Simulated assay, not measured.
Amino acid sequence: MHLRKFLCCMPLKYGVIIAGASFGLLDFIIGCYGWNMLIKNEFPKFVVEFFRTMDTRICVAGFATVLWLLMINNFLLVYAVLYKKLLLIGTWLLINYMVFLFTLVTVLLDSWAFIRIGCLGYCLIVVKSYYTELSVVEAVESDSSRGASESEDESNA
């Protein structure tokens, strides 16, 4: 599936920036909430129940750390769009495809995970479409610059 616009009205570039910034901000807030639980050593009942067979402190610290790493990844997506860094956009796609697959397991346990998986799925399509768009432009530019350098070589001979 390939999109031409984000939400049917906005260019893909701005849609990717919105996706990176919103997921980055959301991951930052949830990660901070996890670290706040650790500092206060107070965990909501649903968190204790979710990790009932494991140490709650270690699990919450692990999830908070992963969310902060995802936050960095999402803000790097914004940077990559602004400076057209295909490698960083591809890395974001790879990491978030894995997150998408891991989150599918938790969709049955939490309704918020269902909302996140829906938004993430759409954003993966948007970012992939933008990545494809940039790849095509870069390929065309490299072909045209190669043709220009070949013409210069022929005129110099």
Results as ranks from 00 to 15, higher is better:
R4H: 12
V47Q: 00
G34Y: 00
T106A: 14
L134T: 00
C59T: 01
G121C: 12
L108T: 06
M37K: 01
F50C: 04
L124A: 01
V78P: 01
M98Y: 12
V136T: 09
S155N: 10
R4K: 15
L134H: 03
F50V: 05
L25C: 08
E133N: 00
L104A: 05
V66I: 08
L70E: 08
F46Q: 11
G121E: 13
I115F: 12
I95H: 03
D55G: 03
L77N: 11
V47C: 05
I39M: 13
N156A: 11
E152K: 11
M98F: 11
M10E: 07
G15K: 12
T132C: 13
I72A: 15
L76S: 10
M71R: 07
E133F: 09
I89V: 13
N156H: 10
A113L: 06
T53E: 09
M71G: 09
V78I: 15
E133Q: 12
L93Y: 03
L124F: 06
Y33L: 15
V47F: 04
F43K: 07
T103W: 08
N36A: 09
L77P: 10
L38G: 02
K40G: 06
S155I: 14
C32T: 14
Y33A: 12
Y122F: 14
S135G: 04
N73P: 01
D27L: 00
F102S: 11
V127A: 09
L67A: 08
Y83S: 10
I17F: 03
K84W: 14
I89G: 04
L104H: 06
W35G: 00
T91F: 14
D27G: 07
S22G: 08
W35F: 14
V136I: 10
V60L: 01
L67C: 08
K85E: 13
G34C: 15
C59H: 10
L86V: 06
V99N: 10
L124V: 05
V126G: 02
E42T: 14
G90Q: 08
A61S: 04
R57T: 05
V137A: 13
Y97S: 02
W35T: 05
G31Y: 00
V47Y: 01
V48Q: 03
V140C: 04
F46C: 03
S151M: 05
C32K: 13
C59F: 06
F102H: 01
M54P: 01
V140T: 04
G31A: 12
